[in-house]
Design a protein around this nucleic acid. Structure first.
Lengths: 211, 211
DNA sequence: TCGCGAGTCAATCGAACGATTGATGCGTGA
DNA sequence: TCACGCATCAATCGTTCGATTGACTCGCGA
């Protein structure tokens, strides 16, 4: 009879934390040792608590977000595994989490058995992906896309707010010619030929978000 | 000692349903009588089960969505109250739910006490709004915006996918001049002056969605 | 040192956009 | 019947966009 896996739940939705806690209460091999409503609080808990798997939401309404928290958690000495549990399945979200060091990525509509399986895998250091997430990653491997440079991403963000090239140039203190040059690069990388298609594609991929 | 309020939970996320069930299990005045993962299933349950308050998510990954289900539920003879519980707080989402007959609208990050309070109000037929939602409605009353016509909304949806005016005219079998006329109307109603700003504003208001 | 990527800029030109003015036809409710 | 909203269409014109070609500078790593 081995020790139960020690879990930390991190989610800004009380309902979700409650649901997770209730789910793991049914299992004798898993123990929820604490909860946090943002990344900061999770890090504080980890300072004083032994945890093997952190179930981490990606976006919090306030406080430290899941990607930042994942990065800091996995930088700890002897870090717990981080299993991301979220509603977001965009390429950018998945990538950001994986790059931050997450061991797994599950969607919140996953059935409980799948989720528990993923927790067990994560605890063993094995990659745990929900089926939709795995499919997304496969698609991305088949059709790799180039990353935008920081400047390109900034221009795309402002563009999505409806700025003309001229307004963009003013906002960024550059010439309109430079804006156009960046846009050409952005369109190439996204495989589109106009600004509205660029915005649409970027939103779908999670490169930018509505706000 | 009165009868407990009979609740039906409708959400496509098992975790959320579990969390809600656990929360109401703490209360002797509320009883979860059943759960459903989409609107269709909820309607089926209501055919054979007495329910006083339905807690309804708005968007389901598949099956009948929350607005449609709310409309059909409130059209039943002696309908239960519908309390929408969702992560979405855009004007369009709130409006659609209210127009469909929902008695209340709460966000999923509401603390449990607030949520239970809302359930109780809904059961009494009183409007129950989360604080963020109430604020949103106040903003809207201060600055009422015109609704788009169905055709305008359709054009805006296609526009947001990146179609040029010419491509739009081809897609809809109308002239480019007609497209432009509709766009002028759309820009006026949204208070913008170009297509990208129209898309941005529409996304923020929930008039269109990324997909 | 050299090559590369990122950022910057210019000029040109055809295509597309947005604003404006004006018009027609249809369905609906008062 | 009339007025209104919605959908449709045309023409015109100035502005903006996107593609192209070409150039320069800087920082960084091999």
């Amino acid at each position: 009879m081995s020790e139960p896996l020690r879990l930390l739940l991190v989610d800004d939705h009380p309902v979700v934390r409650r649901g997770l806690r209730a789910m793991f209460e049914d299992r004798s091999d898993m123990l929820v040792v604490d909860e946090a409503s943002d990344g900061r609080a999770a890090l504080d808990i980890l300072r004083n608590t032994v945890v093997q798997v952190v179930l981490m939401d990606l976006r919090m309404k306030s406080g430290m977000d899941g990607v930042t928290a994942t990065r800091e958690i996995t930088a700890l000495p002897e870090p717990p595994a981080v299993l991301v549990l979220t509603v977001y399945d965009t390429d950018a979200d998945i990538l950001a989490a994986v790059e931050a060091g997450a061991t797994g990525y599950m969607l919140k509509d996953s059935p409980p058995e799948q989720l528990c399986e993923a927790v067990r895998s994560a605890a063993l250091g094995e990659t745990a992906l929900g089926p939709d997430v795995a499919a997304r990653l496969f698609d991305r491997l088949r059709a790799p896309t180039e990353a935008l440079s920081p400047r390109e991403a900034e221009i795309l963000r402002l563009l999505s707010q409806g700025l003309s090239n001229r307004a963009l140039s003013r906002e960024l203190f550059i010439s309109e010619a430079t804006v156009k040059t960046h846009l050409v690069h952005i369109f190439d990388k996204l495989g589109v030929d106009n600004r509205t298609a660029a915005i649409s594609t970027a939103l779908q991929r999670g490169i930018i978000r509505t706000e």
